[in-house]
Design a protein around this nucleic acid. Structure first.
Lengths: 342, 342
DNA sequence: GTGAAAGCGCTAACAT
DNA sequence: ATGTTAGCGCTTTCAC
């Protein structure tokens, strides 16, 4: 059933029906009601492409993920984030288009998005420290918001980020205050902006605590279970192993834990690891020196906010960029077991 | 730059340019070349909405995820799956639309997808045992493929699934053969089809081994870290704790491990847990009784295949349904440590 | 081999 | 308050 059929059926013009359905004021209440009722009855839905062609809007937002290095997608965080964004889109009647862009084809992909007009705005995921995408998007004139930041980008742009620097600074500081001097960092790829910032936070806290950073206690690799395992195992096998560890993701932590298991070490008393869940009660039993970053619901909030931000930018294309910094939660359960002699 | 401008520029009609660009045979080689070259030079891209309106095709596939119970999205597996699907779409020039559908609004959402015409086909995620969506999609006449199955659905339909029954049967059997009699199952929500099948596999293996299933060794809940922790902790606190455990996802396993850590138990010698990674070398060191289900690359393959399946169904709408069963990998490293006396 | 013209289903400017 | 008409940018008959 299309608009023509519906309007013929009602004995009205397409225009009137369209106006009635889209809430234009010049339609009489009685006809609007009649139209709405009939539309509901027959289950009429305007064709999105036709409407888009007429209005020049796609009513869709593109989420663009770099995909060869899987650091982003695999991250459980992505699921929560996208769920939050989806909520916003649902409310605003936008569709969510997911673009998986292989490394190296980025520029082409963005240009394509801009010119084919399948989306009205874009969310940039997984920004690197040096990220050419932001300049490109500026040039293309497509409204966009970045989830994260690109440290070396001078142009102003809208972003939402977690304060990675501060989170890792505080986490490291906490471990240092517990007496640890050999604190390891198992990080993601450090050309990724978030990972870089985390490292900076870690380093600055070490420095503040008068601890000299050791290369053999820092690892940087794609965030997979295997890499977490390798990194942890290698560190434990070297002369002067760490007494505490920070990992940069749940997935790395899983691998790291396995290595600890194999070495006969127990998390509760020997290391600290970052986790990610909403209900923290199970961390508060005093057994863990657990460090916590982003709760699932906060990630979801982030998704929701970012989505709202693009929609705003679409409405007001030349509004000044907005930036949102989210604070990571840092929840700590003190160890009841003996703290390993640092 | 649109078609009209481009053709004016070339001194040709829109028709000819369109034909040249779309590979129609009646265009002379020389003009085709000239057109193509110029199109590339100015970066011409046809407007997707206009083309869609003219052809009646959206060139997009919808992936529909139920979203109130997060079992699907949060699963790291989803990332790999969607990456695989994305690969296929990229090759075939399709877009990927993600629909996050809140529980309860499913029917409306599917009807909307079918009538607004934003997608040409659909991938159904997270099927439940009784899933009304399949009947609905049949009725709507929209090509679709299910990732997973709906056990209680009588109608034929295309699906791709992992053999969950077999995987858990074999895993349980293996543990039983090691001498375990108290094998726990920490499962997802069992109205979800995959979880139900896993439980059936577990139960059948117990029966075959002459082990009476115990309710207190079976848990079923949303797949979150907290739930994994609770389930494991509760089991360990009860009179007759398990000597081996099967968990239904990485996330549950993380929580379960934490509970084990807290109880001073070590994975390597006390339990077995399902994991998920591509590089299994680190499991083969003889320390783990690890049970492994889906490698990341196999999940990616699954995504790729499912995407191909919808595209096929779009091309040949009344082809008989195709079904693909994937075998879960089962990789086991024998424990070198003492096997706990069951 | 190329072009003119109709039309995909809708919205919006312009009547009335 | 309702209708007429002209597009949106493309593909696709149909004519030449």
């Amino acid at each position: 059933m299309n608009l023509k059929q519906l309007s013929d059926h009602l004995g009205l013009s397409q225009t009137t029906v369209s106006r009635a359905l889209n809430g234009y004021p010049e339609v009489s209440e009685s006809t609007r009601e009649r139209v709405q009722l009939e539309a509901d009855r027959v289950g009429y839905r305007p064709n999105a492409r036709a409407r888009g062609l007429a209005t020049g809007r796609a009513q869709a937002i593109g989420h663009v993920l770099p995909v060869s290095a899987q650091h982003e997608m695999v991250n459980p965080v992505f699921g929560d984030f996208i769920a939050g964004a989806g909520e916003t889109y649902l409310k605003s009647n936008y569709d969510l288009q997911l673009s998986l862009v292989p490394d190296g084809e980025e520029e082409a992909a963005y240009r394509r998005l801009a010119t084919t007009g399948t989306v009205d705005g874009i969310i940039v995921h997984g920004p690197r420290m040096d990220d050419p995408r932001i300049g490109l998007l500026h040039e293309l004139g497509l409204p966009f918001v970045v989830h994260g930041r690109a440290s070396n980008e001078a142009l102003p742009y809208s972003w939402l980020d977690v304060d990675n620097y501060r989170a890792f600074h505080r986490a490291t500081q906490f471990l240092a205050e517990l007496g640890h001097r050999k604190i390891a960092l198992i990080n993601g790829l450090e050309f990724m902006d978030f990972a870089h910032r985390r490292r900076q936070g870690y380093l600055s806290a070490l420095e503040a605590a008068g601890i000299t950073p050791r290369d053999d206690l820092m690892s940087s690799a794609e965030m997979t279970e295997v890499n977490g395992h390798h990194a942890m195992r290698d560190m434990l096998n070297r002369p002067d192993p760490p007494t505490a560890v920070l990992t940069s993701s749940l997935i790395l932590a899983i691998g790291a834990r396995r290595a600890l298991d194999e070495a006969g070490l127990q998390l509760a008393r020997d290391v600290s690891i970052i986790t990610h869940d909403d209900d923290l009660s199970y961390l508060r039993n005093g057994q863990d020196e657990a460090i916590f970053t982003a709760t699932r619901s906060s990630v979801r909030d982030a998704g929701r906010i970012v989505a709202e931000m693009v929609l705003e930018r679409i409405d007001v294309p030349d509004a000044p960029p907005r930036t949102v910094m989210m604070e990571a939660e840092l929840i700590i359960g003190r160890s009841t077991g003996p703290c390993p002699t640092p």
